[in-house]
Amino acid sequence: MSERFVFERKEEFLEKLREIVRSGVPEKRITVLSPYPVHEVDEILPSAPSGVRVFALLGAVAGLVTGFVFTIYTVKVWPLISGGKPLVSIPAFLIIAFELAILFGSLLSFIGFLHFSRLPDVNRIVSSEEFENMFEIRIEAEER
């Protein structure tokens, strides 16, 4: 049987959450919903750091590499000297690479966030359930 506790006050909610964890309910079965991020929950229910950071790093590196590869490729494929500068002008290309690092890093972090937090959640969008101003603890039923 799944259980559901709803609180208005943060302190009572945290107390109950501690009690549930102490009583030996496996953390996997507990879902906590809160109207704003509550840092104490991270202490009570410790979890691995967010994987978004991997996406951010991959995106930034991909952007940096793309920026250099793309600019260098285009001047090599049609070698046209402009402004009397060397074909491969690293300082100039660094700016493109820098902007792309930020662009790809941000976009990939965003995609990572959507992936990890299972958004957009179509079932939730069409359901009548609301994002309440309440603290809620849900305990899923044990698998039999």
Partner: peptide
């Protein structure tokens, strides 16, 4: 639809905070 079906679970908040921090840093 715009809210993407946000429900505010601890998992979502964790990734949300991380994303916000990264976007601010970028």
């Amino acid at each position: 639809a715009l809210s993407l079906g946000w429900k505010g679970s601890q998992v979502q908040w964790k990734h949300y905070n991380q994303l916000y921090m990264f976007l601010a840093s970028f």
